[in-house]
Structures are given as C-alpha cells and as structure tokens.
C-alpha cells in the first residue's frame, strides 16, 4: 500500500535525481574498487604500522605504567629523554650494540664476498647446493639457533669447551693447544670480556649466508665477457675479482651493508636468548633493544622505553645517513 502511494507521488524530477544519485554511487563504488580491495592491508598497516609510530611519540612525553591501565598516563614533557640520555646504562648498551654490530657485520661481508665469488666459479650445480646450505641458518628460527648455541657455549658440558679440552689434552695436538687448558672452563657467555664475541659469532653465522646469496646474485649479473677480456689482458684470478667483480658489485654491497647496519643496530633475539631472557646478561652482553625491553616490560616504564626507542631510531638514522652520504653516490649510481 505504502509503496503504491509513494509511486503515485513520484515525479519525473525525482526519478532523474534518483538516477543521478545511483549513478554517482555506482561511480564511487567503481572508482573505489581498488581501495576496497586494498582496505584490509591499509587497515592492518594503519593499526599495526602507522598508529604505533605516532602513539610512541605521544608516549615518550608521558609516564605510563601499563599494568595500571591507560588512565595512569601522565604528561612529563622531556623528562623521559633527559632521564635516558643521562643514564650510563643506555650508553653502555649503545656501545655494546655498536661493537657487536661492527664485529659481526664486518666479518659477514668480508667472508660473504669472496665466498660468493668462489661459489660462482664453482658452476651452477655446486652453487645451488652450497648457497642453499649457507642460506639455511638464515631461515632457521633465531630462537632455536640461539638456544642450541647457548648449550654449545656451556662452560662445563658444552661441545665447544669439550672439543677444546680434547685438543688440549690429545697426545698429537697438546703441543699446539695445551695452553688452552689453563683457561678452562671458558665462560663464553659468563665472562664479560667474551660475551660480545660469542654473540657476534652467532649473528655472523646466521646472516653470512644471506649476504652470500645477495652477492652471488650480484655476481651472476656481471657479463662473462668482461672476465674474458680481463683474462686476455693477462689479469689473474685475484685481479679479476679486485678490478672487475668488486666495482660492479658496488650497488649490491651498498644494499647489503645498509641492511646489516639497520638489522644489527636493532639486534634483540640472539642476546636475549643467549642470556636466558636477560636473566644472565652480563653488562657487555646487553644491546640497546634488550635494555629498552627491560625498561618497558620488566620495569613497566613505557614512557622511558618509548624515549629510548626514539633515541635508537635517531642513532640508526644517523648511521645510515652517514653511510649514504659517504658511499651513496657510488652505491646507488652503480659505476660512478
């Protein structure tokens, strides 16, 4: 009944406006289609990617004990930054992070480059198998890897010290390794002077394969004719690596080193697991990410933790910026 009544009062004008409206809606829906399809990603990225960044800025100017709920947030201005920047522990952990980043990072690239060159010269079959083998640690869970290393590093029962003991006491090897005996049991993770090296080795072991794969990919883009031409000119293997391969690899080196800088400065998992969730962290074994985790989740001081993470962000940005400034033109420009 009502429907009929409505129809009777419908005028051509209304009909037209309805058409226009539905046309507009249609166009809106059509134009918006890509965004509708994108929306799941945008919503998730906004919630977990963009929102936390701005919330962290906000948080770093407040004190907040998460256990007490959102209501306990209190504005403190720059206090968190002042507290963090004058905290000797922050600078200590910053220095640890840099030391571990440099030690493991340098070793990764110095080993990965020649290794990749070697792989390429071995031919396709061997290369595929070997690069898979080298890549394996990278795809293995960091926590699992670190837990195995934790057991291997055990002073009394670990396989590393057991192996060293065997060498030190063996009849054939004791002349060369006998001196190790007096240092046993070596506390690879307990000794403050050793823990940085022990962590660096795990990081090196885990990521060297990733860099080998990047460099191997880079090397395979280099035209074989260039090597041949150099060979004809009388260049040795070494010289071909130094004067042909290395310059052409610059963009790849630049890319890989940038990833290493950013990744190593954020190092968290390996030291966290190797020190049993920081319970056994000696002062040299804690990275800045570990420290901010402790401030946030053990000390329940989210404001300070947010401030520390912004300080870390600035430091990483500075290092990366410096690196771009020094090598960026060569790295990105390719053959310049």
């Amino acid at each position: 009944m009502t429907n009929q009544a409505e129809i009777t009062v419908d005028t051509p004008d209304d009909e037209r406006s309805k058409e226009v409206r539905s046309g507009r809606l249609k166009r809106f829906l059509e134009n918006g289609t890509p965004y509708w399809f994108l929306s799941p990603y945008i919503i998730i990225f906004g919630t977990f990617g963009i929102f936390p960044v701005f919330f962290m800025i906000f948080l770093s100017f407040h004190t907040w004990n998460p256990v007490a709920g959102l209501g306990s947030m209190r504005f403190v201005g720059l206090e968190n930054y002042a507290l963090s920047l004058t905290d000797p522990r922050l600078w200590k952990t910053m220095w640890n992070t840099i030391a571990i980043a440099v030690m493991s990072g340098l070793a990764q690239h110095l080993v990965a480059l020649p290794m990749a060159y070697l792989l390429i010269s071995l031919g396709a079959r061997a290369r595929h198998w070997l690069s898979t083998a080298y890549f394996l640690p990278y795809v293995t869970s960091t926590v699992a890897v670190s837990m195995i290393f934790y057991i291997m590093y055990s002073p009394q029962s670990g396989i590393i010290n057991q192996g060293l003991n065997l060498l030190a006491n063996g009849t054939l090897t004791s002349w060369a390794f006998g001196w190790i005996g007096q240092f046993q049991p070596i506390g690879w993770l307990q000794e403050n002077s050793l823990i940085r090296y022990s962590i660096s080795f795990v990081v090196f072991w885990k990521y060297v394969g990733f860099n080998i794969v990047i460099y191997a990919a880079g090397l395979s883009t280099i035209n074989q004719e260039l090597y041949e031409a150099a060979k004809i000119d009388g260049a040795s293997h070494m010289q071909r690596f130094r004067y042909v391969a290395l310059p052409l690899l610059k963009p790849f080196i630049f890319f890989a080193v940038t990833l290493t800088i950013i990744g190593n400065m954020q190092l968290f998992d390996e030291p966290y697991v190797l020190t049993r969730g920081l319970q056994q962290a000696t002062s040299n074994g804690m990275t800045i990410s570990n420290y901010l985790y402790r401030i946030g989740w053990e000390w329940l001081d989210m404001g300070s933790a947010a401030a520390v993470s912004w300080i870390l962000f600035v430091v990483i940005a500075l290092f990366t910026g410096l690196y771009f400034w020094l090598f960026g033109r060569q790295g990105l420009g390719g053959n310049e």
């Binding site: 057991i151 002073p155 009394q156 029962s157 307990q190 056994q280």
Partner: peptide, 19 residues
C-alpha cells in the same frame, strides 16, 4: 663457586655429578 648459573645445563650437571 663455579659461576654456574641456576637453570643452565651446567647447573643440572653440577647436581648430577656433585660438583
């Protein structure tokens, strides 16, 4: 002491072997 942390492999072994 042996610098043996609680809940480590060496700790368990220490109990087993009476270290």
């Amino acid at each position: 002491d042996g610098r043996i942390n609680a809940w480590s492999e060496d700790w368990y072994q220490g109990f087993q072997e009476g270290k």
